[in-house]
Design a protein around this nucleic acid. Structure first.
Length: 745
DNA sequence: GACCTGCTGCGGTTTG
């Protein structure tokens, strides 16, 4: 037996004797920093607690050591509810907690869709100990046991939310907030909420998310444990694409597959093979299609050399047993394995630590990049990140985004920001009215009918939909009644309508999010394929599909069909890296990188050379001093702001009568008279900020979330603009631009 | 040309 935690720890002495004994037996020499800090705060039980600490720094124990101490000291029927975004995480935590709880005679009950009904019935008979549950299962539990919640959770002492960052700013997060609020209401008291995460950019916003009405103070704990050392390299590659007449022709045998690969893709995969072979690693190429492509290439190299395969794919469309095979390969000792994966392996599942991370193209966000990096670095060793930036070979009429090396510059910006521990601040201003509809229907089930005024008070007045005034709520009730979702009895009670009954009685109701729907692209009666829509689409909007450029003719929201025609003239702009929404902070850092002159130490020689060329263009075009560029038939505007500002600017210019489009780096405004654009911008600068609802009037695809189709038009517009626009940011940009009184060159 | 997450109750069959 090793020595007890020797540093005369006050926190250690606060723990139950039996837990102290378990700590000795586990051979811990001391408590970790997050644990030292969390134990007194959680035992006090009079505040919420947010714990931010790196992976493997004992977050789970920081929460559960004091919580179990508390359960042991109170009456036998007390319990704690642990809420997780993943079933896999519940299964992992169950194994970890069982070891400790068995000796304490505290039961641990996992509860999610794969758990047998008998286990759930047993917990309901004796609701004590640790309940590990998903938001969806908790929703089902509240709806089916509304009358018995006081009896079930009378002994509830704490709510624990794991991986808090995975919930913030999402419709599922809104549901989680509402579930916790409904528990407080049912028990007529508050229960302390404990949140755990490794990548919280803004601790105050995290605490505000954990309890939106701020009725209870929050204790914020940031671990002082030194983070792991990082080794970072950004590699540049020039891509020489193949001149393919018909991409369909390349769906064929292996030889065709090989031929269909661009030179850059092959260069990257050869470098991956050389560098990663012999150790465990994760490769993130951003899409399921790319996962398949790189996994097949790397596996092929192993076969060619007669070596056992070391490369395994992992993504959400793969069958469960295929995914488990990859996870098993990563966990197996003595045999190296690298997973090529999507965000499925970004968090949660225990795969052991890996030696390095490879990121192909830009990561979807800085926070995501950091989360991926956290999976690398064995005990004491540095975490290693290699970013691969693929840039197009330039031609006489290459688009400016290629010339300015958008991919490379964005990757570099993401790395610099993550080294500073900067993460995108979450947009906690999104209304998520889709989830309001779900929660209203759930409340009716939970209470067996509810008065309209009470429903507003629970959900909006005291609850988590604080931005919804009474008149909007009434508007929503009327619309839902019109659609047979709700009925109101003569006594004023809200009940499910005929259609609402069907919604609520299907098991798919419990999830706040929907499986992604795709739109079918049609040209002249022929289907070109299907794609999900994440950008605003209006008549005339340009789309890239199947390697060609199209213009939208019409959009049928019910049938999910977009009619298009070929766009006229011009070269295809290249939207490499996707159209993922980029934050203000990332675009500002990109501008900064382009305006500097010194080489960047973590870029390889190719990347630095590409960057120097881009910087030269940036200077010669005067983009450093003037964000407006007059060209033939158009003006290009470079605000260096995030996509919410860019979307807003494009819509404001459209309202002023121009044809304007957000292309990511710039807004392209069609005109033969640049002076007119400048006059319009001056006009917008001296006008008050526009009404966001009016701005999106012409946007045809305003449905973002699961039940948005049930919203009245006015609320749908409000909801859409709250998620996609930044009117204040756009207006401020235009005012600053106009104040400079330059005219376009 | 993003990506990911989650799901009840019941009836039938099989197994201990």
């Amino acid at each position: 037996m090793s020595a007890s935690p020797s540093k005369a720890s006050d926190s250690f002495s606060l723990l139950d004797e039996r837990i102290q004994r378990w700590i000795w037996q586990s051979g811990w020499s001391e408590l970790k920093d997050a644990q030292e800090q969390a134990i007194p705060a959680i035992l006090a039980g009079d505040t919420d607690v947010v714990i931010a600490a790196a992976t493997a720094s004992g977050k789970t124990e920081a929460a559960f050591l004091p919580i179990l101490t508390r359960l042991l000291s109170t009456e036998a029927s007390s319990c704690v509810m642990y809420i997780s975004p993943l079933k896999a995480l519940i299964n992992d935590q169950w194994w970890r907690l069982e070891g400790l709880c068995e000796s304490l005679e505290i039961p641990v009950t996992p509860w999610h869709g794969d758990i047998a009904g008998t286990k759930k019935r047993n917990f309901k008979k004796s609701p004590t100990g640790c309940l590990l549950i998903t938001p969806e299962s908790l929703e089902a539990l509240l709806m089916a046991n509304g009358h018995a919640l006081q009896g079930l959770f009378g002994g509830l002492r704490y709510l624990v939310v794991d991986e808090l960052h995975a919930f913030i700013g999402t419709e599922r997060g809104k549901q989680l907030q509402s579930l916790m609020h409904r528990i407080d209401r049912a028990l007529k008291r508050f229960t302390p909420r404990i949140a755990l995460s490794a990548t919280l950019g803004d601790m105050d916003k995290a605490a505000a998310f954990l309890r939106p009405n701020a009725a209870v103070p929050a204790t914020v704990i940031k671990s002082n444990d030194a983070g792991q050392a990082l080794k970072v390299l950004v590699k540049g590659f020039i891509d020489y694409p193949l001149a393919l007449a018909d991409p369909e022709a390349w769906v064929g045998d292996d030889a065709d597959f090989e031929k269909s690969l661009s030179q850059g893709t092959r260069a990257i995969s050869e470098h991956l093979f050389k560098t990663l072979r012999g150790s465990n690693n994760l490769v993130f190429p951003n899409s399921r299609g790319n996962v398949e492509k790189y996994a097949a290439l790397l596996r092929g190299y192993c076969e060619d050399l007669g070596l056992p395969n070391e490369f395994w794919p992992h993504h959400g469309s793969l069958a469960k047993d295929v995914r488990e095979e990859t996870e098993a390969a990563l966990k197996a000792k003595g045999r190296p394995a690298t997973a090529v994966c999507t965000t499925t392996l970004e968090m949660g599942i225990d795969i052991g630590s890996v030696k390095s991370i490879a990121q192909i193209g830009c990561a979807p966000s800085v926070a995501s990049l950091r989360q991926r990096l956290g999976r690398s670095g064995r005990r004491g060793e540095a975490a290693i990140l290699r970013c691969y930036a693929l840039e197009a070979a330039l031609a006489p009429h290459s688009p400016l985004s290629d010339v300015l090396r958008e991919n490379l510059v964005q990757s570099t910006a993401q790395v610099r920001l993550s080294l500073r521990s900067w993460y995108e601040p979450p947009n906690i201003g999104g209304l998520h009215l889709s989830t309001l509809i779900q929660q209203l229907l759930a409340l009716i089930a939970q209470y067996g009918g509810i008065n309209a005024a009470d429903a507003w008070a629970v959900l909006c007045g005291s609850g988590v939909f604080l931005g919804v005034p009474k008149q909007d709520f009434i508007l929503l009730l009327r619309e839902l009644a019109k659609k047979d979702i709700l009925i109101q009895t003569p006594t004023g009670l809200l009940l499910h309508g005929r259609v609402g009954e069907q919604l609520v009685n299907h098991y798919s109701f419990y999830a706040a999010f929907a499986a992604e729907e795709e739109f079918r692209l049609v040209h002249g009666g022929k289907t070109l394929g299907a794609l999900p829509l994440s950008q605003p689409v209006e008549k005339g909007t340009h789309l890239i599909f199947a390697g060609k450029r199209w213009q939208v003719l019409s959009l049928d929201i019910e049938k999910k069909v977009i009619a298009v025609m070929p766009a006229l003239g011009g070269k295809l702009p290249k939207f490499d890296g996707g159209n993922l929404p980029v934050d203000d902070g990332v675009r500002e850092e990109m501008r900064q990188i382009l305006s500097e002159t010194l080489p960047i130490p973590f870029l390889d020689s190719t990347a630095n050379q590409l960057l120097q060329e881009a910087r030269a263009t940036f200077q010669s075009m005067g983009l450093d001093s003037l964000p407006l560029l007059a060209q033939t038939h158009c003006v290009q505007l470079f605000p260096w702001r995030g996509d919410r500002v860019m979307n807003t600017l494009a819509l404001m210019l459209k309202q002023a009568g121009f044809q304007a489009e957000n292309t990511g780096l710039s807004i392209i405004i069609k005109t033969d008279n640049p002076e007119k654009v400048f006059e319009a911008l001056h006009g917008l600068a001296v006008s008050p900020p526009p009404d966001p609802t009016a701005l999106v009037a012409e946007v045809m695809n305003k449905r973002l979330e699961k039940w948005d189709a049930l919203l009245p038009a006015e609320l749908l517009a409000k909801n859409y603009s709250s998620h996609t626009l930044d009117v204040a940011g756009a207006h401020e940009f235009i005012k600053r631009l106009a104040a400079r009184r330059h005219s376009p060159r």
